[in-house]
Amino acid sequence: MLGGSALVAAPSATPPSPRSAVPAPSPLIVGDGRTVRLISLGGDRTDGLLTRIGGDIGAAVAAVEKFWGTDWDREIVVIATGSQQDFLTQAGLDPRGQWQDIAAVSVAEQVDFAHHRASGQRMVFAPGAVAMSDQALRIVLTHELFHLAARADTALDAPRWLVEGVADFVARPPTPLPPGAAADTALPADADLDAAGPQRVHGYDRAWWFARFVADTYGVDGLRRLYTEACGPGHGDFATAVHRALNTDTTELRARWAQWLTG
């Protein structure tokens, strides 16, 4: 099973919107005719979460289409779970894994790369998602929707840090880098995303910063090409992907990355 995940955002001073009081209709029709199926497994609490998601899904589809195009699944399934066990079961996650700070995942049962088709796709929200601010929820929803849209173009062995960084680029509005961002100029790595807690949060942030850097330096089209070359089925190593997508080498890329981090 192939999937991508989004972190639970830090608590916000802005509480969830009152629209959570009324369950969202299902299915919804958004964009150019995509069907959205909303499945609530936690009673009133997850009904309210799906109401909020239903209000934001149209904008999320538009953001993903703007970056990735329109050639992806016409049906979007969103499941809101009321317990951690339901979350692990619906997402098909290993219960021994560190999932406590994950807000949602996007998973598929099977991907047919030859025919550009994924089956059993769904976005599954963890119980903690009900407490997210409206802005944080919109980010997580758009992040997971990008994973769903790019599924048939994302190899099973794609570098996870780039997969997650590009999803955050699509979903998160740019913000100033924090002090000390330039302390580590190494390229991001999958290991940065493995351990729950501050290391994982920082790993997601650095992957996001890298995607922003590529878009700022080589254009949004360059970032999309890099994703295709580095993460697509049959991709080569990262150095080859950088050369093909950005017409540079990793030495020059790292030098520019270090400069970008300094602002």
Rank of each mutant, 00 (worst) to 15 (best):
S5Q: 14
S5A: 15
A6R: 13
V8P: 07
A9F: 13
A9M: 14
A10K: 14
S12L: 07
A13K: 11
P16R: 01
P16T: 03
P16S: 05
S17Q: 00
S17N: 09
S20A: 15
A24N: 04
R34C: 05
R37N: 13
R37G: 10
I39S: 10
I39L: 12
G48R: 02
L49R: 06
L49W: 06
G55I: 02
G55Q: 02
D56I: 10
A60H: 05
V61T: 10
G69A: 03
D71H: 11
R74M: 15
A80K: 08
T81D: 04
G82C: 05
Q84H: 13
Q98V: 06
W99N: 08
W99G: 05
Q100M: 13
D101R: 03
D101H: 01
V105A: 06
S106M: 08
A108R: 07
V111D: 00
D112C: 02
H116L: 14
R122G: 04
A126F: 05
A131N: 14
L141H: 12
E144P: 09
F146K: 07
D153K: 11
T154W: 03
A155K: 04
A155T: 10
W161C: 02
L162V: 10
V166P: 04
A167N: 02
D168A: 06
A171P: 13
P178Y: 07
G180A: 14
A181C: 05
A181L: 05
A186S: 15
A189Q: 11
A189F: 10
A191R: 15
L193W: 01
D194M: 14
G197M: 03
D205K: 14
R206P: 01
A207L: 07
W208C: 11
W209R: 15
A211V: 01
A211P: 00
F213I: 06
D216C: 01
D221V: 12
R224L: 08
G232T: 01
G232A: 09
G236D: 11
F238L: 15
V242R: 01
V242C: 11
T250A: 10
A255W: 14
A255Q: 15
